[in-house]
């Protein structure tokens, strides 16, 4: 540096100025572009829609588990491999299950009921309230999902869920399907086949499977659209929420239990 003169080195200042300007532009540019980068068409899903399900337990057949198999395939749950050395009992207790078949018997009347249990997609989901990082969230269209990017695997949501709807991934997941990323150390549950909905499809894998079997026990659709099949069915028949006492306003309803 030239210290022999009191005069500042103007060229040097000029050079520094330009460099700083260039560096500033270079570092800001990505940010500016980032705001423009999201070419995503619109605001995303709308709260004018609320996805929900109506399950007619009378039509749900004893011994049929087509919905479970379809769910496992659609979401790549069957791609998870049983770790070496895990006992049968622990595999049953630790493997993920997004939907499960439950068979009930009334204590008084002896009436038998079959039904599928899954995430009930509450309007006021306890799992979302308790999640420390906000990874558990409710989408505008009523789906209760887990953002695996911020899930730390604390499992507080599993403690809070009244339906035992969530599963923790206890082992490495070797392969996934493109539409349903999933991996070790995070919590997951039924997404109402969000990848299908976002692609414009309006059915879930379990519903399709149930229809294929000819049972038609599962009805899926938009609860807020008064003309949708599910909204009309809900209006016409008596249905109930499981654990209605908690006033969670579930998106999944049942008839005949």
């Amino acid at each position: 540096m030239s210290h022999n003169s009191d005069q500042p080195d103007l060229r040097r200042r000029d050079f520094i100025g330009k460099t700083v300007l260039a560096a500033g532009a270079a570092s800001i540019a990505p940010g500016v572009m980032l705001t423009m980068a999201n070419a995503g068409s619109d605001e995303g899903v709308s709260s004018k829609v609320r996805w929900g399900m109506l399950i007619d337990t009378n039509k749900c057949a004893d011994g049929c588990s087509a919905c479970v198999a379809a769910c496992n395939q659609e979401n790549g749950i069957d791609l998870i491999e049983r770790p070496a050395g895990q006992s049968d009992a622990m595999w049953d207790a630790q493997r993920p299950q997004w939907v499960r078949k439950v068979k009930l018997k009334d204590n008084l009347t002896g009436e038998i009921t079959n039904l599928p249990m899954m995430c009930q997609h509450c309007e006021h989901p306890p799992c979302v309230d308790v999640c420390p990082t906000g990874a558990s969230f409710k989408r505008a269209d009523g789906l209760v999902l887990v953002d695996r990017h911020t899930c730390i695997g604390c499992r507080y949501c599993m403690m809070a869920c009244p339906y035992k709807a969530r599963s923790f991934i206890h082992q490495d997941v070797a392969s996934q399907r493109t539409g349903t990323p999933r991996g070790k150390g995070c919590v997951e549950s039924c997404t109402l086949c969000v990848q299908r909905l976002d692609a414009g499809d309006q059915t879930t894998a379990c519903q399709d499977a149930c229809n294929r079997e000819g049972h038609q026990a599962i009805l899926f659709g938009d609860l807020k659209n008064p003309d949708s099949e599910i909204a009309r069915a809900l209006k016409a028949y008596h249905s109930r929420q499981i654990r209605a006492d908690l006033e969670l306003n579930t998106g999944v309803r049942y008839t005949n239990i």
Partner: peptide, 14 residues
């Protein structure tokens, strides 16, 4: 989950 009912079968230990 189901007051007044007994769970006969469940793969998830209900």
């Amino acid at each position: 989950l189901f007051p007044g009912k007994e769970v006969l079968e469940s793969s998830f230990f209900d």
